[in-house]
Design a protein around this nucleic acid. Structure first.
Lengths: 352, 352
DNA sequence: CAATCGAGGCCAGCTTCTGTCCTCGATCTG
DNA sequence: CAGATCGAGGACAGAAGCTGGCCTCGATTG
């Protein structure tokens, strides 16, 4: 019983139409094993369901799905689904500003229905993937952790996880998850902790193996009403361990167009320079962020460790550039300019 | 006529099930405006169509869509669709190795049906996005160009575009597009050029405003049968302007785990080091690629310009860290600020 | 144990769908 | 320009398929 011939055929038709631009009606009829008349009727049905289907007459005419006003269901094949999952994982980890939360929501939706075999492929591919700009280190957010929590948020289900507090102490929490918010490069979970009868924010990169606790809860209203506002307020009190102020010798727009300037404030300083203020718990990541644009800069303010780290990076470059190739390299010895020798003489310490 | 009540309801049901984990049958019945009995039948229908729907009995029971063996159609809302589109655009531009082509295919599928209003939002958000690792420069591939060509490939439709050849000469081409392939950080179009009666590879970043030429073609078989193999062979003859060989003082696996080692060959050199061979037309990008891992290295072989560029980068870092512009080449640096000199005077390594 | 909720068989009635006609209009090709 | 191809869509009869009631049964929760 219940094989729903028409409904299934409509889905198949949608799938076919998404795979190619133009389909002649007769071909569709053959594929769907119905008469051409029925195909025409099916197309009508889809249209009346809101899917915009163009049709052209004459030889080489046919049907094609076009852009309308509503999103039709996306019918992805296995490979495409894996690609979308991986793309969303990296996007959720802040490859692009402003879409993290939405990307995560879509990812949760996808992972819920992703066949386990495909999930394995996503793991395999995505696991090997480095974070964008990850060269400088910084905490890593596991996409699996994110989606697990995201699912709990969506389903209003309590979640249990291990948490490593800032002082290093670890413990198990069971909380009512309310929202996952990306702030800067980090993800925060805003949740109500019943055992402490209060709202808490958790850094997701410190969350360990979250799993549904099995109990439902009815959402409480967040103080202030807005999760983002609450988080901002909660974070305002937190000062990252290391702060830095940098002056770049290029206009602010230049930096922004290169994708820098996030995770802190960037403002113009005259027409040809700009000031970048940022902070982080991790000196390595802070240094990488500053050096990333590859533009001349001055470190106006910052902890000694940061200066040291930047020097190390610089000396590593000088050392590497001056290395063995000079004696063995074919024609590359020409480049011993005054600037280079001066640089070498300054970098006595070998890297690592 | 033709309102297809059941088919539409099945789609709606799928959409509802994707939006939440558990739905009680009675709630679904109310939402879909049918009797609970019909809901049960609809669930049966979906199951017989291959969608795995779990159900739990008892109070707080309900239906939920779970992972099965086939991908169900993804029903995204507008925001999610935008997020997916942007995520795929960045993924196609090689954020993750190995899924570029598939991501592009999915993107083509999505863009075909993306409502124009949403397309505008994708443009607005995606346009502001910098390329991954874009700090070092290198050619930019426009996602719109990619999808336009990708659509032509899929639909076996001839495509017309402006092309800037390697020597700088520009011209208009009308070709039969066969495959888009990502190689290293670049995209290549493998196409048959009827006006020259031969196969050509085009670098997509040199393609300008592609648009469908309006004519169809029947695909020819690619010499050798495999597009990827053909491209590899075609590119083997091409030597990039600048070649480099670098020795990193960390194991190869370490680099790979950080997302480096692409766009060239990476092989182990003993247990604690590895050799990286790569080439590029652009020295700046080459230098960035080498410096990106933030690991001690030796430049074994490379053009003088590359050494010079690496030194420049190193000196910029040292200069910036010291914030003493006295000998910096930029010349624009002003007097050492009190803050900066104070900071320098206390620079000493500290623990983490 | 009682209440809740899904599973599913059965049936009557009716809506809906399909295939097969048919004509008409658009489009491309020779 | 004529003919071929292909979509649009009306009409119709017969065959499915679908729905909403009913019912019983089993699982789960409190």
């Amino acid at each position: 019983m219940a094989d729903a011939p028409t409904a299934g055929r409509l889905l198949a038709l949608l799938s076919l139409l998404q795979g190619r631009r133009e389909w002649p009606g007769t071909l569709l009829a053959k594929r769907l094993e119905v008469s051409p008349r029925t195909v025409r009727r099916d197309v009508d049905r889809l249209r009346s369901l809101g899917y915009p289907i163009d049709s052209t007459s004459g030889p080489q005419g046919g049907y094609s799905l076009t852009a309308g006003t509503a999103m039709p269901p996306l019918l992805l094949d296995d490979e495409e689904a894996v690609a979308v999952a991986i793309a969303l994982r990296t996007a959720a980890r802040s490859a692009v500003a402003g879409i993290e939360e939405t990307a995560l929501r879509a990812l949760v939706k996808l992972e819920q229905v992703l066949p386990s075999e495909l999930r394995g492929r996503v793991q395999a591919l995505g696991g090997a993937t480095a974070l964008v700009g990850g060269g400088g280190g910084g905490p890593t957010v596991d996409a699996a952790v994110l989606t697990a929590i995201g699912m709990a948020c969506r389903d209003e289900e309590m979640v249990r996880f291990g948490y490593r507090a800032r002082d290093g102490a670890t413990g198990v929490r069971v909380v009512e998850p309310h929202a996952l918010l990306a702030h800067g490069r980090r993800w925060y979970l805003l949740a109500f902790d019943p055992s402490r009868t209060g709202w808490r924010t958790f850094r997701v990169d410190r969350v360990d193996s979250p799993r549904p606790a099995g109990r439902r809860f009815t959402p409480r209203s967040i103080p202030g009403g807005d999760a983002a506002a609450y988080l901002t307020k909660a974070l305002a009190g937190v000062v990252y361990r290391h702060e830095a102020r940098v002056r770049y010798l290029v206009p602010a727009a230049e930096l922004r167009s290169r994708g820098s300037g996030g995770w802190g404030g960037l403002r113009a300083d005259g027409a040809d320079a700009c000031i970048y203020e940022t902070s982080d718990d991790d000196v390595g990541w802070l240094a990488f962020r500053i050096a990333f644009p590859g533009v001349a800069f001055e470190l106006l303010e910052g902890p000694p460790e940061l200066r040291e780290r930047l020097r190390e990076m610089g000396e590593r470059l000088l050392a590497g550039a001056s290395a063995a190739g000079a004696q063995a390299g074919a024609g590359s010895s020409r480049s011993t300019t005054a600037k280079a020798s001066r640089a070498r003489s300054r970098s006595r310490r070998s890297s690592r």
